[in-house]
Structures are given as structure tokens and as C-alpha cells.
Design a protein around this nucleic acid. Sequence first.
DNA 1: CTGTTAGCGCATTCAC
DNA 2: GTGAATGCGCTAACAG
Lengths: 341, 341
Amino acid sequence: MKPTVHDIASRAGVSLATVDRVLNRRPGVSARTREKVDQAVSELGFVRDVAAANLAKGRVYPLTFIIPSNDNSFMRGLRLALEEARARAGVERIAIQLVDVPAFDAAALAAALKDAAAEEPAGIAFVAVDAPDVTEVAAEISQSGIPLVTLVSDLSGAARDHYAGIDNAAAGRTAASLLGRFAGGRAGKVAVLAGSMLVRDHRERCDAFAAAIAREFSSLALLPVLEGRDDPDVVERLVADLFAGRDDIVALYSLGAGNRGLVRALRRLPAGRRPVVVAHELTETMREALTAGLIDAVLNQDAGHEVRSAIRVLKAKADGLPVVADQERIRIDIFLKDNLP
Amino acid sequence: MKPTVHDIASRAGVSLATVDRVLNRRPGVSARTREKVDQAVSELGFVRDVAAANLAKGRVYPLTFIIPSNDNSFMRGLRLALEEARARAGVERIAIQLVDVPAFDAAALAAALKDAAAEEPAGIAFVAVDAPDVTEVAAEISQSGIPLVTLVSDLSGAARDHYAGIDNAAAGRTAASLLGRFAGGRAGKVAVLAGSMLVRDHRERCDAFAAAIAREFSSLALLPVLEGRDDPDVVERLVADLFAGRDDIVALYSLGAGNRGLVRALRRLPAGRRPVVVAHELTETMREALTAGLIDAVLNQDAGHEVRSAIRVLKAKADGLPVVADQERIRIDIFLKDNLP
DNA sequence: CTGTTAGCGCATTCAC
DNA sequence: GTGAATGCGCTAACAG
């Protein structure tokens, strides 16, 4: 049978309460007693039953998620994932509060963070805008002991406890490899379409992509980066204008959102002029575009995984428990028309 | 506050025991009382606290895993994943028994299944060899009420409750797309290297791959399939012989294991003759080969995910609970040198 | 500093 | 058919 606190107590010759104090590193135990208990624990190979502990504690973790009120499919997916997490809130002993902030707005985010922290939740997760005022507020909050996790896009500096998102440099390199090899040695221009260079995930993808193209595909030359603000209409206009002005574009990397506009613009291009296209996030639009052959590959991050991971990490940090980094790594999914789920 | 059994009891005007009988569909409750309880449950939106229930029950699920004693990295990874699952056995209330069987041996597998079933575990997971005698035994076991899950490779017919593995047809198609596009329009032969056509995962990958190549890359022609029995030495000899006999091979798809041998053979090929290569399973060998440029892409299935999923499903089936199919889908990971974890 | 005791939400005897 | 009482493994008052 698995040893319980009772076994530890009798083995160490102390009471349940004392065992509990030692296990939870609470004060008020003599070094000698503590040692006896620790020894009993390791001798019997005791591991505490977390479920029973939570049952007894009846603790709930109030968590705050700050999400940009950006209306694209990815953010909608993120919200959906949060709703699902809320549905499981009872079992997981969490209470999620969702806060909206304008997209790409550092000042608004900083203010929202401050407000959230004032309510002293057990943890805060937020999609970072990588700007000094945000970093500053984040540092303050972190100092005050509230665990902080960045979601999807990270914050420079060490002002957060964890980042729940993909390796965006790897994503950029992967996009470059796929796009370069799919282009099959053709020479020409490569267009890059971002949302905003203010968010770190976009910047990292872009830099890594550019570097990889330059390094490995010398016949391809990058055009200046276009910023579509993750807005379908803006994106559509940008792409349409781009292709109207020249005919040497062989490939396009869309590293942000708002790809509904991209697909609309691509669809109007004569088939012969359509570039090799790699984009991000497997939305319904992207799925159709892949099937139709308008898009060649989609890199995806699973919003559900990211939310669940953020929650696990925040809870662990709140309890002062270690995080298994390997288990919390968010993968880059690659989808072709052939492996759509 | 979340309603508990106490709330249900007082609301329905009955005792705790009666509520419990109704919740667990045990007999000995009048229709009238049952109705009152059911109503209280739905009115209060009661959901039972699984953790507390398990604590009270003290139930453990004895699970048996039957794994081929095949010494390749993937199977080693699978065993490792099982060890990790065992480490969490206490918390998850499971007790895993591991049974070894010779690889690709239908008779041995059938016998092992029979033995395992005789001990009446709460569930059995096994890597299927798709042969009639296995199907037959599986059907018997399934009839007897023991939940059955196939792992990594599936069984034809409906003689199992669930399959915890990737969509191998999608994997084959994906391999074809990557390989065809990476080959960049070059014309020539494509070699296919399998483990054994006796296991369904290999057959499915192979068929889907062949179909996709024929459909989409008319300049590529398939060579007869080679069977390496997932053995590095056999694989090395086969590949060496293959390339010694001809020089029109532009690509190679290795859909089985034993890729250590493949890499050895590739390494000895003059750089100019090296084909585009897509293989399966991200082992240490494959990681190095990707980095070195000997292999172009690796399709991977996460053994850890598969084991965890199998366990979740077996527990759910044992309790007669539904399985969220979507959540149990095992993804095909695609790795290039650029997104190695 | 240490021990006693009463739950957490649920399942399960054993009476009635 | 139904209910009261007890305990799963752990935590948290409250006493000493």
C-alpha cells in the first residue's frame, strides 16, 4: 500500500499536524523533529496525494487572463480555449477572470496589468506587447509575488515567470525552409507580411525568417516587410497593391493574422502568378485555402495547449512548485493539405 | 458555491446514501425517489467531484500494456513513456503491467492477449499485428467486457474500443507532399523502405504515399517496397545494395524504424548522389541526421502522448464514460532541421 | 513547539 | 427501500 501521512506520523513518532507542517514547509517545527519527519518521508517513499490535499484545502486559484480585443480567428480561438478552461474551472479549482485590452497598445496593457494585480489574483497571464512601460509594470507585479505568465507573445527581460507560446524564431526558420524548398530553386522576390513589429512574436519570426532565407536561399530576395495590423481588410489591400505593382514575387510569408484578406487577394491573382505561400494559424479560412491549393503550408500554435499550459504553470508557481519545462513546451504544428485534422 | 451531494440530499429530501445510489445507478431506489434526486441534480447543476469520489473509492485500475520486444529507438521511447506513466501511477490510481512479445509475431501476440485477459485487468493496450488470429482473440476479449486499445498500429475490424496512434494514411500523404516538393520537379525513382507489410501502420503509410506520389508527382516513379524489419543492419544492407545497383534514385521514404542503418548507408553515398529523404520518428539518430542534412524531414508520433491517451481512454472505458475523440487525436509532428525541440 | 479534532466531497458498510 | 455512521488522505483551526 502507498504510505500516507499516518504512516509518516507513526514512523517519525509525531502527530499528523507536525507531519503536515513539515510537508508544507510551515514554520513552528524544531529542526530535530523536521529531520525525523523528512527521514520517514524518504524512507517510506511518501508522495502526497494532491487530490486529497486539494479536497481538504478547498482552495481555489483566482487567475486573470488579459487578452487583446483583436477580432481575428486566432484570438477567437484563444477566447474559446479560455471558455473551455472555465468549464473545467470547478474540477481544477480555478476561477478565471478575462480582461480585454486594445490590441498592440502598450499603455492600455500596462494599465490593465496594474488593475489586475490590484485584485491580488493567484496569477496573471497576458499576451505581451513588448514595450518598456509593460516591462516596468510586469517587474513590479512580479516583485509583489504574483506569478506572471506571458501568453503567445513574450516580453523582453526577465520580468515574467514563464512564457507559454511557441519558439517564434524556430517558426520563422521553418517557414523559410518550407518556402525556399517549395519554391524549388526559382529566383525572385519574397514578400513578408506581418501584423505589427511591436509584438515580439512577429519580430522574432520575421528576423529568423529573413536570416534563414539569406543564408540558405541565395536566389530569393526579401521585399520590405508589410504591416497589416492583423486586420483582414488592411492585409487584403496591402497584398493587392503589392502584386499590382510588380510581377517578380515567387513567394510570400504571412507571419501574422488577418489571413482572410490574404486569401481574398490571392484568389484574384491569375493562377500563373500565385506565389508559394506559408502562413500562420490553422483557422477555417486557412484550412480551406490549403485544400484549395492557395496556401502551401500553415504553421500553427494550439491555443488550447497554450491556455492549459499557462494555467498549470500559474498554479504551480502559486504553490511554489517547480515546472517541468519539457512538458510545457508548446509545439509548432505544421499543416499541409495532406495532414489536416 | 458548487453544489455537493449534501445539497442534493436536502433538496430532494433524502439521505446521502440514496443520492449516491441514484448517482451511481445502483439498484434499490424507487422510481419516485430516483426522479426527485435526478431533478435536484439538474436544478442545482450538480457535477460530482471525481477526485473526491476516487479518494473515497480507493479504486486502482490494473492496466496491461503489451509491447513488441523490438529493439529500436521508437520502442525504447515507448517503454520510457510507460515507465514515466508508472511513476505517476499512484496519483492516477493505475497499476501498469508491461508484457513483452516478439515483434511482428501474430501467434505470440494472440497468446499474450489471452494471458493478459485471463488476469482480468481493467483494460489492455497493445501494439497490434493485423492478423486474423489476433483479431479473433481481440474480439473475444472485447466481448468479455475488458476495454481494449490498440497502440501505434491498429487492428482491422471493430475488435477494439479505441486506437491510440496517428492517422497513418495522412502521414503517408504528408511524406509524399514533402518529398515530392523538396525534389523540386526532378525526375527519377523513389525508393520506399518499410519494416513489415504485416503491420497496418506501415501498410497504410505505404499505400497512401504511393497513391499521392502517383497522383501529384508524375515525374517520380516508385521502386518496389523494401522490407527492413525495423532492423538497422538489415536496413543498411538493403539501402547499400539498392544504391549500388542504380543511379536514378532521387528520393527515399523510410516509413519504418531501424533508421540508424539508413543513416549509415546514406553517409557512405557521395554527396551528389544523396536523395531527398523523409523518415519517421525523431530519435537521436534522426535528429543528428536532420542537422547534418542527410535527412530532409522527419514525421514523428509522440510516444508519451500515445501512452497517456491510451491510459485515459482505458480508464474512461472501464468506468463506462465517453471519450472526447477530439482530445485523444494523436498528431503527426513534422520536424525539419529548423524546428527541432 | 506539538497534538487533537473536525471536516473537504463522496462511497460504502450495516442497520432499520 | 432508505438512512446513519464511518473513512479515504490531507489540511486547518484550536488547544495545550
